[in-house]
Simulated scan of single mutants.
Amino acid sequence: MNNPVINHQHLRALMRLTFGNFASLIYLGLVLAAAVFVTVDTLFVAHEDASFAGVWLFFLAAPTVFVFFIGSSLWGAEAAGPAWSVYLALAMSVLLQSFALGWFLRLIRDGGRTRTAHPRGA
């Protein structure tokens, strides 16, 4: 009988695809650099008008961030959504795209072959 709970091996594979390859790490580094830039610009730089620094985060999180925005608007949030839903949409979008980059890289590296299970030591 299948256990519906994600086991340790599945979680490790998920983490390896999301954080354990160079494409995902470069992407996450760019997102981190943009987040630091936005934070410094927001907290320490005085502007007469609004700053567009936060747009860089949305460029890096596009297009999936807009899917999360549409989803949050469907369950009754106001047009822009509360602040926590914006941050949650950004975080989920970045993690989803990092996973997709890792999966795509593995697909290219393996040449489209499917992996077969081999017992250890065989």
Results as ranks from 00 to 15, higher is better:
D110E: 10
F104S: 14
T18P: 10
P119L: 14
F66L: 07
R115M: 00
L105A: 12
G20Q: 12
A100L: 09
P119D: 10
A100N: 02
F44K: 09
M92V: 11
G111E: 15
A34F: 07
L30F: 10
F52E: 09
I108M: 11
L28W: 06
S98F: 01
S85Q: 13
I108E: 01
V67D: 09
F22Y: 12
F37K: 12
L11G: 02
F37N: 08
L57N: 10
V67M: 08
L28K: 08
H118P: 00
I70L: 05
L95E: 03
A91D: 01
D49M: 05
A117E: 11
L43K: 14
R16T: 13
A100W: 07
T116Q: 11
S85L: 04
Q97G: 09
A53D: 07
A50Q: 13
A122I: 06
G102M: 06
G81K: 04
T18M: 15
N21S: 06
Q97Y: 01
L107Q: 11
L105G: 07
V94G: 01
G102N: 07
L107S: 11
I108S: 02
A61G: 00
L14M: 07
L101A: 14
L57T: 09
T116D: 02
G121H: 08
G81C: 06
L25S: 12
Q9C: 03
L88P: 00
F69N: 04
W75H: 05
A91R: 08
A91L: 15
P4Y: 14
M15Y: 03
F66V: 01
M1K: 12
W84N: 06
S93R: 03
V55H: 10
V86L: 14
A89H: 05
L88E: 01
T64I: 08
F59S: 05
S24A: 15
I6F: 08
A117V: 14
M15F: 02
R120D: 05
L32Q: 08
G54R: 11
T116F: 04
A46R: 15
A79T: 10
A61L: 06
Y27F: 13
A77S: 13
L96K: 02
N7I: 00
F44I: 07
A89W: 00
S98P: 11
V86C: 00
L60N: 04
T18R: 10
F66K: 03
S24K: 10
F69Q: 10
A122P: 00
L14S: 03
G71P: 00
W56Q: 01
G102Q: 07
D110K: 12
G54F: 07
L60V: 03
P63Y: 13
G71F: 06
G29D: 03
G29Q: 07
A79Y: 00
I70T: 04
V45N: 03
N7L: 06
H47G: 02
P82A: 15
G112S: 08
A77P: 00
L32I: 15
A79W: 04
I108P: 00
L43R: 13
A53I: 04
F66Q: 05
D110R: 13
E48K: 14
N7P: 10
R106S: 04
L90K: 05
A35S: 15
F68W: 13
F68V: 01
A46S: 10
